[in-house]
Nucleic acid binder design. Sequence first.
DNA 1: TACGTGACTTTGG
DNA 2: CCCAAAGCCACGT
Length: 105
Amino acid sequence: MDAADPGFRERVEALVAQIPRGRVMTYGQIAALCGSPRAARIVGGIAHFGNPELPWQRVVKKNGALAEGYPGGIPGHQAALEADGVSFDSSGRVNMRERLWHLDH
DNA sequence: TACGTGACTTTGG
DNA sequence: CCCAAAGCCACGT
């Protein structure tokens, strides 16, 4: 059959794969771009059981905080983002105004 | 078909 | 500033 039904999960994975190095996106933003601004939790669920080769580390919370469910916890997520060249403040949050990436630019 | 779950978001105290 | 509770949608069983 035609693969014209990517589904929500496929869209999220495709979008995450397009996040450039050194940039981050929020769960809600990704969900909104996929057609459901309230499905931020679903994005997290996909991250936990989706394609492990995708840069899920570049997906953070809306306030710039990191994902508590990431392998290794907050420190693990922070270390992964630092490897991408992302810096953090003393609160362990990403500077969203500098690092938040959006398509319409 | 229906229920439960979750790497979130928002509001209130 | 910190803590707590409810709402929300897609996916698996």
